[in-house]
Design a protein around this nucleic acid. Structure first.
Lengths: 218, 218
DNA sequence: TAGATTGTTAATCGATTAACAATC
DNA sequence: TAGATTGTTAATCGATTAACAATC
């Protein structure tokens, strides 16, 4: 049953994955699925799927399972993907440009409207139709345009200050690619993409000693 | 005390963060730190720090705390960062090129040695000194050169097959930026960077209803 | 109706935090 | 030695899994 209690972040992190699998099912014209079938596809337990979904409401039907399209749209609503988001990129370097050039965002309603940088060689340029402005212009821009998300793709030394400014100016979300942890008021949410950390985790796994069994140990 | 029991992935994911904070302390010429001080900097409990570290050994000293440089180097060893890694990029698009252009990898010993793509306009080009080859040449390349990590920055439709090939050819690590889940034998480890999932998580947080208190509810 | 599968409660498992004896 | 702080065990908390009555 639906209640207002806070949803754990473990659950929230799984929602995009459900959404993706349901989208794939839709693409294959599959109209219904049980938690058991979905659990096999996703390599998780059916129990977890039912528990996760029941945090938000009862979307299934006993004896039938879940209607794929309905569930897809419900998760879309839960994730608030049924509207457009305006984003700015701060830091026009490699990653910043890659994100601007990524065509997958627009069809989901994620629009990058401006890029900010300190580099005079970049300022005034246009990347895939998006103009690069001087960071000095950022305050004015943010105050005159709706900005839902600031994407930080700049050196860690500058990231903290920029993040604090964006928070002060009322930007509700920071997607942080800079390799620092940000401390912001709760009105501004942060999601980190620490690529180096991710790679290090992989390297640990590669080198992990497969624990020798008793037999092999002799 | 150090035992051989399997370390939980929750712990492993925290190691790069410890490593980063200790590196920062070193840069500021701080030679010792207690779990309590570090816990305040990192916004976690001192208990967790001590528990985490004691999965790998006793690195501290009662009454003193931890020697920063020693601990830094121990974590470096645990993460196996004390050697060079050779990586190839499969998919020379935006993100692939951004990773090749990123200068931060080399100083950590992460070297990108080749790029593979299907696009004839890219093949033969050189990006920051790294040549772009036809994917047809990948098998030969992987078999004749040490490749520790395959970085997948290609469309999801092609990702599964490429990953399977790399695994078959003995590549131990896949850093997967493609928006699919990969199922590979345990000899090849996978670390996913699902940018769209990450962004969706942020959007959920932005839109999350701050639960109204009883008072506000009236 | 009989069979299937949910929604939900209860049991289990694992991770985090607290506490404190050991010891530098 | 006295004070500080670890290493480690025990307690708590939260998340996952199992079980099953409800019901389509």
């Amino acid at each position: 049953m639906y209640t207002d209690r806070k949803i754990s972040s473990a659950v929230i992190k799984r929602l995009p994955r459900y959404y993706r699998y349901l989208g794939d099912l839709l693409d294959h014209d599959i109209t219904r699925i049980s938690s058991k079938e979905l659990s096999e596809k996703m390599s998780i337990t059916a129990s977890q799927i039912r528990q996760d979904l029941n945090n938000f409401g009862g979307f299934g039907q006993q004896g039938y399972g879940y209607n794929v399209e309905y569930l897809y749209n419900e998760i879309k609503k839960i994730l608030s993907l049924d509207r457009t988001y305006h984003m700015i990129v701060v830091g026009g370097g490699n990653i910043g440009q890659a994100l601007v050039n990524y065509t997958g965002f627009e069809k989901r309603g994620f629009v990058i409207t401006a890029i900010f940088d300190v580099n005079p060689r970049l300022i005034g340029m246009t990347i895939r139709g998006v103009e690069v402005y001087d960071v000095d212009k950022m305050e004015e821009y943010v105050k005159n345009n709706k900005v839902d998300v600031g994407i930080l793709t700049l050196p860690r030394t500058a990231a903290r200050e920029v993040a604090q400014n964006l928070a002060d100016w009322g930007v509700p979300g920071i997607w942080n690619f800079s390799h620092v942890d940000l401390h912001l008021p709760p009105t501004t949410k942060v999601e980190n993409v620490h690529l180096t950390d991710s790679l290090m985790t992989l390297l640990y796994k590669i080198n992990e000693q497969p624990k020798p069994t008793e037999k092999e140990n002799k």
